[in-house]
């Protein structure tokens, strides 16, 4: 009887543990599924919200018309999209050489001790909030551009311009590109470098002809991911870009970027359904562009990692 009782208890206990296991496992499965289709959900919501404007105006009009005048119901995104591409492109042109050379220095040239000191500094730079970046750019870069750089080229500028925004963005993407590149550079097999050095190549020749070639996919993916980050950066750009939706006439002219436009106009336009829908269309464009760049970058990165069997 007692033994029977005991075995009954044990069986019941076993069942309780199994039930808990089952419940928790299923719960984790559900959460995982929800989060992994979250990006699809975001896409659907943005699409349904922008369906109003897509129904009344053609998509080519929205993307390629330069008439931005919300009070008259004209939503031409062309100047803003061009502004975003120029600001992001210029920031990457500034950031890529500096980041690559820094990454090479950290991965190949710097002594162990200095490397150990440098890493935390990069982490700190990566962790600085974007609003602080914007504030510092406003304090430091805006007067610099207004009083020195723009007059040097003979152009009048308020300092709130494309050039300032690009430099700010470049500093913001430094840590992303550098850390991804350092990881790539230090993951390639030592034999490759040794083979090159042993046939008499200088260190820089090894870097140029062996390391850069071996890690080319990783470098490109780092650039693509940096592009995605720069393209979507909102607050810091908003503070220094000038906020005028026009195709910029010079390097020192104010312009506007897509995320910055959403941030500054959403509060004022959200009460009118059509304007809100137009801004949602802007968010959809931003989402799709960033998604494509990130996806390309991530897939390249994965293939590169498989190549050197990480």
């Amino acid at each position: 009887m007692l033994i029977k009782n005991g075995s009954f208890d044990k069986k019941w206990l076993m069942d309780k543990r199994k039930i808990r296991d089952l419940i928790c496992t299923k719960l984790m499965l559900i959460i995982t599924i929800i989060v992994s289709i979250l990006f699809f959900l975001i896409f659907l919501i943005l699409l349904s919200k922008s369906s109003l404007i897509l129904g009344s105006e053609s998509i080519t009009d929205l993307l390629f018309s330069s008439n931005w005048n919300p009070s008259n119901g004209n939503f031409g995104y062309f100047p803003v999209i061009v502004g975003t591409i120029i600001v992001t492109g210029l920031s990457l042109i500034i950031a890529i050489p500096i980041s690559l050379l820094s990454a090479i220095f950290i991965a190949e040239y710097a002594p162990r001790k200095i490397r150990k000191i440098l890493r935390p500094f990069l982490d700190v730079l990566a962790g600085v909030p974007s609003v602080v970046f914007g504030l510092c750019a406003f304090l430091f870069l805006v007067p610099l551009v207004r009083d020195f750089i723009a007059p040097f080229f003979g152009i009048e500028s308020t300092g709130l311009c494309l050039f300032t925004a690009s430099i700010t963005l470049a500093v913001m993407v430094f840590p992303i590109i550098i850390s991804l590149c350092v990881e790539a550079f230090s993951s390639i097999p030592l034999e490759l470098k040794e083979a090159s050095l042993s046939v008499g190549a200088t260190k820089w020749e090894t870097v140029k002809k062996v390391i850069f070639r071996a890690t080319a996919p990783s470098i490109i993916s780092a650039i693509l991911l940096g592009f995605g980050r720069a393209f979507g950066e909102t607050i810091a750009v908003n503070m220094v870009v000038g906020g005028i939706p026009k195709v910029p006439s010079s390097l020192f002219a104010p312009t506007e970027t897509l995320p910055s436009l959403i941030a500054s106009k959403y509060g004022e336009l959200m009460s009118i359904p059509k304007s809100e829908s137009a801004l949602m269309f802007g968010a959809l464009v931003l989402f799709i562009v960033v998604l494509i760049f990130n996806l390309l970058g991530l897939i390249l990165l994965r293939n590169a990692k498989k190549r050197w069997k990480l």
């Binding site: 989060v35 990006f39 979507g232 990130n294």
Partner: peptide
């Protein structure tokens, strides 16, 4: 998840 990481916070 990596894609979600890259989505701009304004979205």
């Amino acid at each position: 998840l990596d894609i979600l990481w890259g989505i701009p916070s304004i979205i």
